[in-house]
Simulated assay, not measured.
Amino acid sequence: MSNDQPPPGPPDDDPFRKKPQEPQEPTGPGEATPPPADGPRAGGGSPYGSPYGGTGGPYGAGGGGQPPPYDGGAYGGPYGSADPLAGMPPLAPFGKRVLARIIDMIIVFVPLVLISLAFGGVEVTYGGDDWDEVADRVNSGRQWLWSLITLVAYVGYDTVMTAKSNGQTVGKKIMKLRTAMLNDGRAPDVGSSLLRAAVLWVPALVCCYCIWWLVIVITVLTDKPYRQGLHDKAGKTVVVSTTQ
């Protein structure tokens, strides 16, 4: 029996001394490269996976997920998909969008009427042949001031509610809808919300009320595949259904 002692130091087969093995190359046509030891990375999913954005992926809190599966190329997104609506919640039905807009208009209109009554009301002239007098009243400084107040009220309401309330105005919250950025599903920031509201309200209240609303309705009904009105295209947003 030999009395030779093993050399000093840990044995060669000590697992703490071994270096990580390099991935093995396939040795034949029927063999595949083995997966990493820690398994596949968890995917993040679409940012539209929850009513107010996902929790994984590069656009959610977790990070490291997959990019949106729908086509964001229209706004500079590098990703594409056969189905541009894949991963998104259902687009908002047109009827619900109209009802939500009516609710929001009433919410802004009622305080404006009360303020107007407090300052003597809006002067309306019926009949009479002195059209110059009528034009002078319409073009008076008071009338222009009131138009400016109305414009600021509607644009401000839409901007603040969209940017600060997860893309939901009061009308959209009642109808379970929300406005989201098309490229990543998050709530629009102040800049996008302001641009969207300005395109919607400035032409309608300044020059072409009925015609502009008709244009908005037609663009929402005919746009494919996202049902974007001109204001949605300006803000790069889409209106979708939500559970809250």
Rank of each mutant, 00 (worst) to 15 (best):
M1V: 11
S2P: 13
S2C: 09
D4Y: 10
P6C: 07
P6N: 13
P6W: 09
G9S: 05
G9H: 06
P11M: 05
P15C: 12
R17H: 12
K18Y: 06
E22F: 11
E25Y: 06
P26V: 10
T27Y: 08
P29C: 02
P29L: 11
G30I: 08
G30H: 09
P34C: 01
P35Y: 03
P36I: 08
D38I: 11
G39R: 10
G39N: 04
G44V: 02
G44D: 02
P47Q: 12
S50A: 13
P51F: 02
P51Q: 00
Y52C: 05
T55L: 00
G57L: 10
P58M: 07
Y59E: 10
Y59D: 13
G60N: 00
G62Y: 04
Q66S: 13
Q66P: 05
G73H: 08
Y75D: 14
G77A: 15
S81M: 03
A86F: 04
A92S: 07
A100L: 03
R101C: 02
R101Y: 12
D104H: 09
V108A: 14
L114P: 01
S116V: 00
L117G: 06
G120C: 05
V122P: 00
V122H: 13
E123W: 04
T125R: 15
G127W: 03
D132V: 03
V134F: 11
A135P: 03
D136W: 01
V138R: 07
N139H: 12
N139W: 14
S140K: 08
R142A: 14
S147L: 15
V152T: 04
V152Y: 00
T159E: 02
A163D: 00
K164Y: 05
K164M: 12
S165Q: 13
N166Q: 13
Q168S: 05
K172H: 07
M175V: 10
L177G: 01
R178A: 15
T179Q: 13
M181Q: 14
N183A: 14
D184E: 11
D184C: 07
D189T: 06
D189V: 06
G191Y: 04
L194C: 08
R196K: 10
A198N: 07
V199R: 03
C210V: 11
I211D: 05
W212A: 02
W212F: 04
L214V: 13
V217E: 09
I218P: 01
D223N: 15
P225I: 07
G229S: 10
L230I: 14
D232T: 02
K236W: 03
T237R: 10
V240R: 01
T242K: 03
Q244Y: 07
